[in-house]
Amino acid sequence: MEDIICFYNKKKEKLYGILSYPESNSNKIGVVLLNTGLNYRVAWHRLNVKLARFLAAMGFTVLRFDTHGIGDSEGELKEGIITEHFNEIQKGYFAEDTVAAIEMIKQAKKINKIILVGLCGGALTAFFTALKVKCVEGIISIAGPVTLSSAKLREENNHLEEAALLSSYIFKMGSVKAWYKFLTGRSEYKKIGISIRASLKYLWNNIVNIELGRKITEQEHKGFLLNRDFIYAYQKYCVSQRKVLFIYADRDQATWEFNKIFRNRFIEKSNICKKFTEIHIIKNTNHIFSSEDSQKELFLLCSDWLTRITQNNA
């Protein structure tokens, strides 16, 4: 069953959404699917529509909605460079609208348990929202970026890419031609120097521990584009003993960055974060999970995890 619903956010803007729910035997668990960047409620190739209908058939009540200025909802987002909009979303721009959506689904369907499922930028919105709303019992974060998208920031500082260059220089160490160039003053010494410095900084960042719940300073992570607001929200969320499932696609830049600068440092090294976090990487697929097989795997992972954590919390 599907109903069109509308509700208001804090600024009194009317937001539109679609509620998918089982005809009978609802398990009284609400799932809110969150927007990917500036896409409207259906998401890439209707992934949210397919996921909502799949979960509704499993007994969940699922809401997907347009945040303000997106899709059919009221409000307006300014025109501008898309990555700067992404940057704002990655810092929690749509969290308040999501709080309103949770209130709506709770009231409309008499539901008290909420799970947030977000794709890409929506994954980050989930963490920022969960800090505001206690009834969020779990988060499924799908292909969420751990770095900021701002093109301006990336142009100014990108130690991660600089550090990645070092491996190509190391590879060249086996080449006589490369050594000849190096010894005869024809190598890019400045670039090599930057790459070594960035790599050392990267290693140092992975050694130094950040106390749980302390926001990383800009200086501490300058150049690595790490989304400090998201990390803070993720850690606080884990401290509140709520569970999260990270799902990534193996052929995705977001996954590479997650593994490179987030996973070891902020999950593996923290007992509490590790305890409440599960990670699953889907093979042979891209950021938008375009293949049919990857979608099936994604949907099953979501429904299994949702069933598991809601049964455990019952």
């Binding site: 200025g69 025109e79 460079i81 898309i82 909009h85």
Partner: peptide, 8 residues
């Protein structure tokens, strides 16, 4: 390819 957002 979405580089610039111009909804109006």
């Amino acid at each position: 390819e979405w580089k610039y957002y111009n909804p109006f």
